[in-house]
Design a protein around this nucleic acid. Structure first.
Lengths: 231, 231
DNA sequence: ACCGTGTTGATTGTAGACAATAAATCAAGC
DNA sequence: GCTTGATTTATTGTCTACAATCAACACGGT
């Protein structure tokens, strides 16, 4: 109860609303935001809305054409590939640092987390390996053990934001759930040896596999769309 | 002359002005921005100024306390260490990709660039190894050869922005200029073998050395400041 | 039919006014 | 002297109105 209470402006609230709409799919990639309509819907003036939009531009979730308007960033398979490559570098480094810095208790907690995942995954294996966000996310937990705050903020902030857009579009991790969990265990095993090279390698292999799998899934989706057009 | 001409709003212009002020040191880390004073100085209303400020908040150059004001982000030695660690991961990956993708002509161009640097460095060796930005920056040029646009934008965008703040505060690379140039050559040698592992390792070693050197320089500065206080 | 020009409507960009908030200062009471 | 409450001041937050811009459409000329 020692948390300092801070005021929350309309801009803050609007930013959160827009975020939720973007990640929830109400505002789809490529979709234009109409200031006046949104302001009316939110019951506020255009000023704070514009400020919120500017903030999300700075975070690269929205992009503006001067005098034309603002749209949600568009997703391409190539951009996803690029994102996952960057993620590989960053999470590899996070895992490396974690191997140097994690305590035995920290390792135990991560094992519990994976056991928890396994008990849930038995229910959802057919649907994919979904992790809740925050402290229930294996990757986020490892990043935290790196004790590099900037690295954590990048992994769990901007990069994570963009990846969330893709995850919404494709719930196609189903073919990979069991393998992903297995790789999580391999990562944790490597991490617990305290060997930074092994830990980094295990994490990078995992993300690299995810990238290859996502690419295959997207190609498959493109084929389905193409054959759907022919029908 | 085929470049499409696009309108430029006051917000865009103000954003650039503020950026220049931040990186040029007119707006120092920790310094508060006073909206009314700035708006008066720029000869505009507060609206566009606020929008520009929001954008820079989204880019993490400025941070806001609701109802209090906005200040330039503060720098700590720990944050610089964290930044350089992230940079190590990203530029290592960029160099890896570049090794897989660069053409022989590309390698030659980078060699010319380093020769150019050497001819300049003979003049400025006593003052440090300063590279102009853009296409004259060795690191940026390598990142471009990665052909991963998102990676390039991160390296040359947000990360570069924050590192620029530190570079302004400390022109203390003087003890490292010759070594830095030598390491640049080592990176290029590794890159031209086409071996991704070697290339990545060379770049990461270089950035890691820069990190260690920066840390020493900052420690030395702290000591000077402490002894200055005793006088 | 095509092209160029002018008009209209929708939307974005900006200015200025008013409301709200926090910090500093002052005054009164204990 | 210290605490509390009221007032003042500086600044931020929001709203409304007007200006500017762009795309779409209509019309006239070739």
């Amino acid at each position: 109860m020692a948390k300092k209470i801070e005021a929350k402006s309309l801009v803050d609230a609007v930013t959160e609303r827009l975020e939720a709409a973007i990640f929830g799919g109400e505002l789809a990639p490529g979709e234009w935001l109409r200031e006046q309509a949104l302001a009316t819907e939110f019951g506020i003036s255009r000023g704070p809305l514009r400020e919120a939009i500017r903030q999300l531009e700075g975070r690269r979730l929205l992009e503006r054409k001067t005098n034309i308007g603002v749209s949600v960033v568009e997703l391409t398979p190539q951009r996803l590939d690029e994102l996952l490559t960057v993620r590989e570098a960053l999470e590899g480094m996070a895992c490396r640092l974690a191997a140097e810095r994690i305590s035995p208790e920290g390792v135990d907690q991560l094992r519990s987390l994976l056991a928890d995942h396994a008990s849930h995954s038995e229910v959802v294996l057919g649907e994919g390996y979904y992790q809740q966000s925050g402290d229930f996310d294996f990757h986020f937990r490892i990043a935290k053990e790196s004790r590099n705050d900037y690295l954590v903020s990048v992994i769990s902030g901007d990069l994570y934001d963009l990846l969330r857009l893709y995850r919404y579009k494709s719930s196609t991790m189903s073919g990979r759930a069991a393998q992903a969990l297995k790789e999580h265990h391999a990562i944790l095993d490597a991490l617990s040896t305290g060997d930074p090279d092994q830990a980094e390698k295990a994490m990078r292999t995992h993300i690299c596999n995810a990238r290859i799998h996502a690419k295959l899934a997207m190609d498959r989706q493109a084929e389905l769309a193409a054959s759907g057009t022919e029908a």
